[in-house]
Design a protein around this nucleic acid. Structure first.
Lengths: 360, 360
DNA sequence: TTGTACGCGTTATCAA
DNA sequence: TTGATAACGCGTACAA
């Protein structure tokens, strides 16, 4: 008779075998459905499975089958709206491809990131997706290159999602979106509206690939239109709403002349709008404001925000798709996803005359 | 001499053992640090580990050690702001407790949810966290009770995070927040401002535990103040911004009299504000609006939204903490996290006189 | 169609 | 302080 498994430890394939009077091998075959099994035994086995409430042990299967089917998702944090969308895309595609999705957060700590990648190598994750821009220090690039090689040797794949390649000889899959192109387009749009003094809020964290790209687009648009970039209008801030607010107040307090603000993210733009409103300035009549990312917030702001759309969910999906279905011989892959300007109500023609701005 | 592992398959503990001239057991002890090992051998082993770039095989360890340390996080989707915060909390606490975090999305499909729970049982997840309210159908409760029992037998734990218990005899950990209390408080606040006709937007999906709780609080506040609830002011809608917009337009078109709107979520409130603005109504002078959740969006709206604060991140953290550190003999656990009203600028005294509202 | 024997990579037990 | 051996739960040759 079947041994009744004691509470707390799960029934194994042997319990099922004993309970149904066949060998463990047969049970395995019934469950996998790979081999021919007589209808009668199949029924008996399935009955035992149900009675014992048996489920397979994923660890054991992974051990013999060579690795769990897992995709790891390593990100700053989950609550940044764009990160959440990338995560959504990663999880979605992982599910489509029959993989599970592990998620880890670094809170911006590079050490932690390396630890996590190591952990994922232990876990045999098929792909390790690193999300977000990075600060491009030499040591970071070197160390990440190292782990990329280690992962590669173990049959796993490092994926850079939203940051540029580490080098052409580094085994990694890179899915970027066009930071520079989007920034160029939206800046050009402002210039076409007659704006000449455009503040750029987000020059902080020098070497940060995302901000650098956007700044480059901003500068390139100026060059293309033979306009000078006013250094005083570049503002080093962090990624949050408050710093957008503070930076704008500061800009106004310094009496800096500008008719438009390019906020490096929509979240920053949110703070900018508040500061402008408090100063009694109308958007877009007095000042135009643009953001970047086109997260849902952009539509909820007053006025609705002109911004650069990035399909973050697609970014995540593509990252996983490419990483799992790549040509095994290709050392590195590199894909850039397009961006486009979404015009809403926070932008308008530059005011004709300079006016002295008054604080509230 | 050590065998050089061929590219593609990782070195095992045996490779390290061979390379350093000791037994696999010794290597294991060096790595675990549990047993005394001579300094000399330890050094040799570590050298081999570095040279071979060896990392342990998590699957194999799990097989012998009895399960991987994993927490599963099952949620509607990752991009809902409140869900993302819960996820953040879950991941955070899982990390603190030395567990990895698996994440899966159901997109609202109960079948998928059951599949995923089953999958997590295979994975030996220590805790399976179900996030969000549920539609309380009989069959759903029955089936979920079943899987809770199955998980329990396997030494795992089902956690309901943000929905009420399934029953006192169901082995599960429940962490709720006080939907009803928050709704009661914010409705009372509106009543105290003189509002008598308060629309409730979000009565949709009958049986949805979250909405039901909030509706109950809304009704109880009316009862407590001996005010009638006007059925025409209850509106069945979905959770998104658009339905808040449509419902408000509809309410206005029907000429329904109301001086305040209780939107069941902040996102719905966002749509409400747009509709009111388009109709030429001022907030809060003509109409007061409150939301629920206090997601970051609430501060970004114009005017800033009065709403009910829920600490979603803490909710996620608590869920994991309780599930992992519970009394092994306690069948069910139940905790309710408090909520509180955050007063911002979308609420004010009820207008003295009824006025005919004009569409734009 | 079914069963036996072995191995996956690791740790625990026992012996030396 | 170290090593040989068994065991974890499953899949797969190979044999029957």
């Amino acid at each position: 008779m079947a041994r009744q498994p004691t509470s707390g430890d799960r029934p194994t394939i042997k319990d099922v075998a004993a309970s149904s009077g066949v060998s463990a091998t047969t049970v395995s075959r019934v469950l996998a459905g790979n081999y021919p099994v007589s209808t009668a035994t199949r029924a008996r086995v399935m009955k035992a499975v149900r009675e014992l409430d048996y489920v397979i042990n994923a660890q054991a299967r992974a051990l013999v089958g060579g690795g769990t089917k897992t995709v790891a998702f390593i990100v700053h944090d989950l609550v940044g709206p764009s990160f959440a969308y990338v995560g959504q895309g990663v999880e979605q595609q992982a599910t489509v491809e029959g993989r599970l999705c592990l998620v880890c957060t670094t809170h911006g700590d590079p050490e932690r990131e390396l630890e996590l990648i190591e952990l994922m190598r232990e876990q045999q994750a098929e792909a390790v997706v690193l999300v977000g821009g990075r600060v491009n220090s030499r040591s970071y690039v070197e160390r990440t290159t190292q782990v990329a090689r280690a992962l590669d040797k173990a049959g796993s794949r490092l994926v850079l999602c939203g940051s540029p390649p580490l080098g052409s000889d580094v085994p990694a899959t890179v899915i970027e979106y066009d930071n520079e192109g989007g920034a160029y387009a939206v800046t050009s749009y402002l210039i076409s509206l007659g704006h000449r003094d455009i503040a750029f809020l987000g020059a902080g964290e020098p070497g940060h690939t995302t901000i650098d790209g956007r700044l480059r687009g901003y500068e390139r648009a100026h060059e293309a239109h033979r306009l000078p970039v006013t250094p005083q209008l570049g503002y080093a801030i962090t990624f949050d709403r408050e710093s957008g607010y503070e930076a704008t107040r500061d800009l106004l307090a310094r009496g800096q002349k500008f008719t438009a603000v390019f906020a490096a993210t929509d979240v920053i733009a949110s703070g900018v709008l508040v500061a402008l409103r408090e100063a009694g300035l109308r958007v877009p009549e007095d000042i135009s404001v643009v953001g970047y990312d086109d997260i849902p917030l952009a539509k909820d702001l007053t006025p609705e925000l002109t911004t650069v759309h990035v399909d973050y969910e697609e970014l995540g999906r593509t990252a996983v798709r490419y990483a799992l279905n790549r040509d095994r011989h290709a050392m590195s892959q590199h894909t850039v996803i397009g961006t486009h300007v979404v015009i809403r109500n926070s932008t308008g023609p530059a005011p004709k005359l300079g006016r002295t701005r008054s604080r509230k």
